[in-house]
Amino acid sequence: MNQTQIIGKASLSFNKPAYISNYASVVGQLEGQGPLGKLFDCVEKDPMFGGTTWEEAESFLQNQTLRTLFKKSSLKPTDIRYIFAGDLLGQLIASTFGIINYNMPFFGLYGACSTMGESLALASMTIAGGFADKTIAMASSHFASAEKTFRFPLGYGCQRKQCATWTVTGCGAVALDSKEGIAKITGITPGKMVDFGVKESDNMGACMAPAAADTILTHLTDFNLNANYYDKIITGDLGYVGQTILINLLKQNKIDISANHMDCGIEIFDNANQGTGSGGSGCGCSASTLCSMILKNIENKVWKRVLFVPTGALLNPISFNEGKSIPGIAHAVVIEEV
């Protein structure tokens, strides 16, 4: 491997980019009614996606997204060297049962809601390093399976805090290619875990914003760039609270992203009409927004280059009950027009 690809503290600048050859997104009804509704490939009315349990519903959602991706492109499962995917459920059961029938070599990833960044980073590294010619990066989340895993049974009547986010029912899959595509990934900055001791699981924006700030700062330093180099710096699911904190934290480091910052969680829902709180969250939030609005805008030359920074809050119900804090993580991926 060429040494010059390694730059700064944590980043990679690919000599040969990984091309995005195609992408697909499938979401639930609430997301379909949201501001990005028309941009998704498929809006599924059945919250069970044809399954009988919430866990099965999420794996059917992943399965349907892959089916859509193969239908949109000329790809076949046998063309894919490796698939990198993940979700929020215990031991990645949604990805396991969603992907199993496609018979593709599979790397299961957990990065909480940052999984789309992690999968894109690894899938593009694999291509840029010459270890594969075609890969897929995918992530999903489902409102009901996430509520069941992290909060209460769906029918339980309790109040949501105003700063709480709403888990997106959605999945996004990106097909990467070593030769050609509609967009290209030219570099990545994998993030480190940042913990400011926040223990409020219903204020995940506050848990994740310092990690996003750290990754963006590291990225700009490593690549020696100004924030306005990017048309958009797009975080995953910080929501309104997290966005405020991120912009402030970066301002303290003399970086102003207030003009070009965008958050998938804020874009995907319309809180005033949909009552979704601080914004959307979950792996599916950044994944489905990437595979609809973001890649469409790059494909249509609206944006030249964006920094895609999915964010994750690393908790599980046990660590939370045992009084552990909630560290955040964020991975940056540079996506440019071709």
Binding site: G155, G157, C158, Q159, R160
Partner: peptide, 30 residues
């Protein structure tokens, strides 16, 4: 009940209906 509970908070939690809701919702889910 979950929609009403999100609006009313303790208003639906404290009466015996809240107790019934907590058992019924868990039964349905699991």
């Amino acid at each position: 009940y979950s929609k009403l509970g999100n609006f009313a908070g303790a208003g639906t939690l404290v009466p015996i209906t809240g107790f019934a809701n907590s058992i019924a919702s868990a039964t349905i889910e699991y």
